[in-house]
Computed example of a mutant assay.
Amino acid sequence: MKPFLNVLKYALLLALSGALMVYAVRGQDLARIGHYIATANYIWLGLTVTLAALGYFSRAYRWQMQLTASRQHVAYWHVYHAMMVGYLANIVLPRMGEVIRCSVLRRTSGVPVEVSLGTVITERVIDVLVLGLLLGTVLLMEFNKFWSFIQSLFVDKYDSLAANREVLLAVAGIAGLLLLVFGYLLFRNLEQLRQNALFIKVVNFIKGLLAGVFSVRKLENKGVFLLHTAFTWLVYYLMDYLAFRCFPETYGLDAKAGLAVLTFGAFGMAAPVSGGIGVFHVMVQSTLLVYGISKEAGIAYALVVHGAQTLLMAVMGGISLVFTGLHSGKTAPRLAPEPVGSNP
């Protein structure tokens, strides 16, 4: 039953991506879109792909720093290949890449999954904070341009929620009551649970997870970590901004437009669909529409940029998949993670 539900879930997500792609091109001149794609300046696109590869190397080094802080001393290339296999998985299996790359790292380097997963959670939290900062910056710089855009995304949803406020409050109340009952039962049977083998495994897993999450506090060189974080996002920005040069219609867009495309495109890539397909394209197309770019030119830009990055990810991830297949099981003894509350 579970495999069937997983297949159904991914099929529905794929259908959602397809529906969004249809929405993005609906009522548009497909021949014109094809012309934009065929006549794009792919020299600039090649530069963005090169930058993307550098960004992957930087992200892998940043993850290695987190693992080292968790007392998991792993070779850089093992970290890099595990990360790229995870990215490859995300193209097909939405949001499963994070778990898969941790599983790969366990097979190739013996790193406990709970520890590496904790570092990935920290990485994602940092990315969310950066994305929030970028969103605030875009809205401050281009408030008038994007006010109508934000309204179109959220006003209808807000009105719908307001109309059903009583139902939502009732659901929240029931959920809160159930949580209190669960907490009481857990507290009352805590001593018995402590003797349960499954409970002990869960507790140990959570301890390892927290060790990875708080690894950032134990970094030997926080400045280098922040530098790699900044470099990664700078690469993302330059990829979107330089890609404007691929098309005459977007060639004259300024740096603020590049920041806007980066921000809203990142939200699209974060959506729980395969590789951000559909959501990314709609978000980028809508953002460029704010800057006076036609829907045809906007979707052509999104298709070319997303397609190039997906192809790069597939190639680099495929190479890493071969590497991990050759080295799977060749693990070395690992150092156990320090207790979460210990001093660096």
Rank of each mutant, 00 (worst) to 15 (best):
M1K: 09
K2T: 14
L5F: 15
L5S: 14
N6H: 13
G18H: 07
M21W: 05
V25S: 10
V25P: 05
Q28I: 02
Q28L: 15
A31P: 00
I33Y: 04
G34T: 10
Y36R: 06
T39N: 05
N41Y: 08
N41R: 15
I43Y: 15
L45M: 15
L47W: 11
L47E: 03
V49L: 11
A53P: 01
Q66Y: 09
A69C: 06
A69G: 04
Q72W: 06
H73G: 00
V74H: 01
H78E: 12
A82F: 07
G86T: 02
L88W: 06
A89H: 02
I91W: 00
I91S: 02
I91A: 10
V104R: 06
L105T: 03
R107D: 13
P112I: 11
P112N: 11
V113D: 05
E114A: 14
E114F: 03
V120T: 10
V128C: 08
V128A: 13
L134W: 11
L134G: 01
G136L: 14
M141F: 01
M141G: 00
E142K: 06
N144P: 00
W147Y: 14
F149Q: 04
K157H: 02
Y158M: 10
D159T: 07
E166R: 12
A170R: 11
G173Q: 06
G176Y: 07
L177S: 08
L177G: 05
L180Q: 07
L180I: 15
V181P: 02
G183V: 15
L186P: 01
F187A: 13
F187L: 11
R188T: 03
E191H: 11
Q192S: 13
A197C: 00
A197Q: 14
V203S: 04
N204F: 11
K207W: 14
L210S: 09
L210R: 08
S215N: 09
V216F: 14
R217A: 10
R217P: 01
L226E: 01
T229P: 03
A230T: 06
Y236E: 04
Y236A: 00
L238N: 04
M239E: 05
L242P: 01
A243L: 13
P248R: 08
E249Q: 12
T250Q: 11
L253I: 07
A255F: 14
A255Q: 09
K256E: 08
A260D: 02
V261H: 02
F264K: 04
G265M: 08
A266W: 06
F267Q: 01
V273P: 00
S274A: 15
S274E: 02
G278T: 08
V279A: 09
M283Q: 06
V290C: 09
S294V: 01
A297H: 12
A297T: 12
G298C: 09
A300R: 02
V304H: 01
H306L: 08
A314W: 04
G318L: 07
S320W: 02
F323L: 14
T324H: 04
G325C: 05
S328V: 13
K330L: 11
K330M: 10
K330H: 12
P333S: 10
P333Q: 10
P339T: 13
V340A: 07
V340L: 07
